[in-house]
Design a protein around this nucleic acid. Structure first.
Length: 867
RNA sequence: GCCCAGUUGGCGCAGUGGUAGCGCGUUCCCUUGACAUGGGAAAGGUCAUAGGUUCAAAUCCUAUACUGGGCACCA
């Protein structure tokens, strides 16, 4: 016998142990069987997983289980990402806490420590995924920086080089002075900040009124190599060709004309700093201006800043502005909002900096993914992300792939004095030194779907599992990762890395704010699992995971899901209580079935189909919702109650028929729910499967099965809707008249549906409405009335009811009925007037109108009798 | 600035052309033998605004407002 309440801990532990022992996640190529493949978005080894990972991985596990149950060879590849800058930052913080810096350790010792950290972190992450019930193929665990992935990275870099798609050049790149490295364009975030626009006078060389430039960053003036004005701007024509002097350092620079300058903005004079601004860089190229670096890679002013050299950007700003003001150069200072670029890893302000970096050409690589998208060979779910994805590929810029950090794949290029650099998968020999920089962590991530299957080797796995099937990730890395995997997939395999990408939302806190450590609103998935169970957490997330939408996470939703799990537990418990102890299979047959049985079978079949269809299109919320409503509201609230009448009766074919329906519906539903809440469904299914005539050891191995036979019965569904409507009407009446729920009462019935309720459905009405008796008859005196679809009920309550109150109640019902009729008639008028409405629509509208009218008439009659 | 989503009862969200639903919350009643992690009942929304299409619009179209996001930006 099951306990009264579900206790997740022991069940989860036992199930995990049995799944592990059976190696349920294991996959191998199988001839003649379709593979279904997901590669995990490898979490960075920066710490433990958060609730967003729980969402991401629950989705994947649901899809994997679903497809495995559909008979595909499901393979879910686990792994972790070395995480480049992000992980190095974590380690630097740790070192700082110990009062050290990475240079104190030196590169080798630092990397050694990183490796140790990585080992610990991987264990934590894999442990959490295991706890979540993730059916990963653990034998395939990969790491973006392990040996096999290293080979793939070097091979890819070399191949791209050989195809002319890799180059080294001095370009203006996004430089994070805190992380001390270049970043690619998409690793930079923009945010609007309040600042000031400074109008600064650059006097004419030799004295006199010169140009007044407007700038948000006065400190870049030390890198100015020109002042530019628009050729059409008459105000400044007199200065063109002359020279002006940069204040404070007295360096003369030319005034040039360039159409880029917007004379509506600021003063119409633009200071040109080619080394620190993309647009200025381009102006510089056009006018062959020199570049002067005013800011060093560590974020300090350079020698070019004269007396300010060595100051940090912030300190320099605080020194330069007052000096300009004191010496009369500052003509004006106005409030100004400007977009500031920040590092996506540390949020510090990005410095555009001219430096020598490695790049991958993108335009060529983007062509195949674009074609695949247009041809429908690659789909994004939900599809509204397809356009941004497309736009990004169309407007793509070259990818800066070198990073000036230590943690990552060393760039596979070797240098030697007097020789050309050599790109190779290993050192060309003695005397050559390898490039000290490492590759962007996303370079190895981009190769993930290939590299996990052994690429560049032509392995059996690669042939069988590539392309993968579905990629599941958040929209924040659509370009950073998804697009690049497609580019690499096409470049090296000639096929998309996956035909489907599922883009899910972010888990936010309950008020919709992003979770962050600083806000203190982060939710730890492990805490949720400990408190409410893993199935509850999974179901709560899946229930709300509408395609592409963010989730406002409230612990209450987990409590709700926990209650649902408990409901399942208890409904199974009830079914088991009504089965003989000695297991015996109950197969579905037509014999002995009543309306309620046919109804629940029809509803069950429809629900299973809906859930399956929803998972097929990556809509777990729709699947979860359909199963939730079916199991709680239809199976538990109505069917089990309806079945009780026969279950308490004598043994016989009728009783066995009910048992068969209970067992089969429950079994099929548990299996349908299994991808979403694997633990409790496995546990409960194991308990009832002997009665369902099933013997497979795990749901995953047995598959869905479903109900045998076709049970669709729309007429029965309509009929049962009337029965339930009648019961609800009586219950409502009882509640309003304060009839104690336990008290059985007599009732009389009238109307077209009375025959059915007095005949085949009588037991249902007696049972669910707590009636002592139900008889045909007109309204007796001193009684209350409940009007349902097709029937009126009269409950004699001699001396108990208040006639005034009863009239009031009925008047309210009548008003509702009148308004219903009005709506129905309006619709009917519309439809009969319209030329192109199908006959069935017309009939349906008539039926609706007639039934509403009948209800009104019955109410009117009753009110007439009462007055 | 361009583009995309969203705007539905107190809160969080479904619903896509035919009389507005769910969860949580609220109110009332109930510990009847699956479950108080439960059962029954009730209150509460003219579906952002203004137009339009249609016999019929929360649902389609157009504008507007607000919110969120993506992209690109004038220093």
């Amino acid at each position: 016998m099951l306990d009264k309440a579900y206790d997740p801990k022991p069940v989860e532990a036992a199930r995990l142990a049995s799944w592990d022992a059976a190696r349920l996640g294991r996959s191998e190529p199988k001839d003649g069987k379709d593979p279904y493949v997901i590669v995990i978005p490898p979490p960075n080894v920066t710490g433990a997983l958060h609730i967003g990972h729980a969402l991401n991985n629950t989705l994947q596990d649901a899809f994997i289980r679903h497809n495995r149950m559909l008979g595909r060879e499901a393979c879910w590849v686990p792994g972790t990402d070395h995480g480049g800058i992000a992980t190095q930052n974590v380690m630097e913080k740790q070192l700082k806490a110990e009062g050290k810096a990475k240079h104190d350790l030196g590169r080798d010792a630092f990397l050694e420590r990183m490796q140790q950290w990585t080992r610990d972190c991987k264990a934590t992450i894999l442990g959490q995924l295991h706890r979540l019930g993730a059916t990963l193929d653990l034998d395939r665990e990969a790491f973006t920086m392990d040996e096999a992935r290293g080979k793939a990275v070097y091979h890819a870099f070399k191949t791209l080089w050989e195809r002319g798609l890799v180059y080294r050049g001095e370009r203006l790149v996004n430089w994070c002075v805190r992380c001390g490295t270049a970043l690619s364009d998409i690793e930079v975030e923009r945010e609007e900040r309040k600042g000031a626009l400074y109008h600064i006078h650059y006097p004419l060389e030799g004295g006199g009124e010169g140009a007044v430039v407007a700038t948000t960053r006065p400190i870049t003036m030390f890198g100015d190599t020109a002042v530019a004005v628009n050729p059409k701007d008459k105000r400044w024509t007199h200065l063109v060709g002359k020279k002006v002097v940069i204040p404070l350092i007295d360096r003369a620079i030319p005034v040039v004309e360039d159409a880029y300058v917007d004379f509506e903005f600021g003063t119409g004079c633009l200071k040109v700093t080619p080394a620190h601004d993309q647009n200025d860089f381009e102006i510089g190229e056009r006018h062959k201006l020199p570049s002067i670096k005013a800011i060093t890679p560590d974020g300090k002013l350079s020698e070019a800043a004269g007396p300010y050299a060595g100051l940090s950007r912030e300190k320099a700003q605080d020194a330069v502005v007052p000096d300009l003001e004191a010496k009369g150069y500052l003509r004006k200072k106005e409030d100004h909002k400007s977009a500031v670029q920040t590092c996506y890893r540390c949020a510090s302000v990005i410095e555009p900096l001219l430096s020598l970096q490695w790049f991958v050409k993108q335009t060529e690589l983007a062509k195949a993914p674009l074609a695949a998208l247009d041809a429908g060979e690659f789909k994004i779910y939900p599809e509204n992300w397809a356009k941004p994805y497309r736009d990004w590929l169309v407007n793509i810029k070259d990818w800066c792939v070198s990073r000036q950090i230590w943690w990552g794949h060393r760039i596979p290029v070797w240098y030697k004095d007097g020789e050309k650099p050599v790109v190779a998968e290993s050192s060309p020999g003695a005397g050559w030194t390898q490039d000290p920089d490492v590759l962007d962590t996303w370079f190895s991530s981009a190769l993930w779907p290939l590299a996990v299957f052994g690429w560049p080797e032509k392995t059996k796995d690669l042939a069988y599992y590539y392309p993968t099937s579905t990629l599941v990730t958040g929209y924040e890395i659509l370009y950073l990762w998804v697009a690049r995997m497609q580019m690499m997939g096409h470049a090296f395999m000639g096929k998309p890395a996956f035909p489907d990408a599922v883009i899910h939302g972010i888990v936010r806190d309950k008020s919709g704010k992003k979770m962050s450590k600083s806000l203190g609103n982060v939710v730890d998935p492990l805490v949720m699992m400990d408190k409410h169970g893993t199935d509850a957490l999974r179901f709560a997330l899946m229930h709300q995971a509408f395609p592409g939408k963010d989730i406002a996470f409230d612990e209450q939703s987990v409590v709700g899901a926990r209650n649902f799990v408990n409901k399942l537990w208890n409904s199974t418990r009830f079914v088991l209580m009504n089965l003989p102890e000695a297991p015996k299979a109950y197969a579905l047959g037509k014999d002995g079935l009543e309306a309620a049985d046919l109804w629940i079978l029809s509803r069950c079949q429809a629900t299973l189909a809906k859930a399956k269809a929803a998972l097929d299109v990556y809509d777990p919320a729709a699947a979860a919702g359909a199963l939730y409503v079916f199991l709680w509201d239809e199976f538990c609230a109505w069917y089990i109650e309806l079945a009780k009448g026969r279950l308490t009766g004598a043994e016989g074919p009728g009783k066995d028929a009910v048992r068969a329906v209970l067992v089969q519906v429950l079994s099929a539903s548990l299996k349908a729910l299994h991808p979403l809440m694997p633990f409790v469904t496995e546990e409960l299914h194991a308990a009832i499967k002997p009665y369902a005539g099933e013997s497979t050891d795990f749901i995953l191995r047995g598959g869905y099965g479903g109900l045998t036979g076709d049970w669709s019965a729309p007429e029965i569904e309509k009929e049962m809707a009337k029965v339930m409507g009648a019961v609800t009407a009586i219950r409502s009446l009882r509640a309003q008249l304060n009839v104690p729920p336990g008290l059985k009462i007599k009732a009389f019935i009238d109307g077209p549906f009375a025959g059915a309720l007095l005949g085949k459905h009588k037991a249902y009405a007696l049972l669910l409405a707590q009636l002592e008796s139900l008889e045909a008859g007109a309204r007796p005196p001193q009684s209350a009335t409940a009007v349902a679809d097709g029937a009126a009920f009269y409950i004699p309550l001699a001396g108990v009811i208040d006639l005034g109150k009863e009239r009031e109640r009925l008047a309210k019902d009548l008003a509702k009925a009148e308004s219903d009729i009005e709506k129905c008639e309006a619709k009917l008028r519309n439809i009969s007037a319209a030329p192109n409405v199908p006959a069935e629509k017309l009939a349906e509208a008539r039926e609706q109108r007639d039934s509403a009218a009948a209800k009104r008439d019955r109410l009117k009659e009753t009110i007439a009798v009462l007055s």
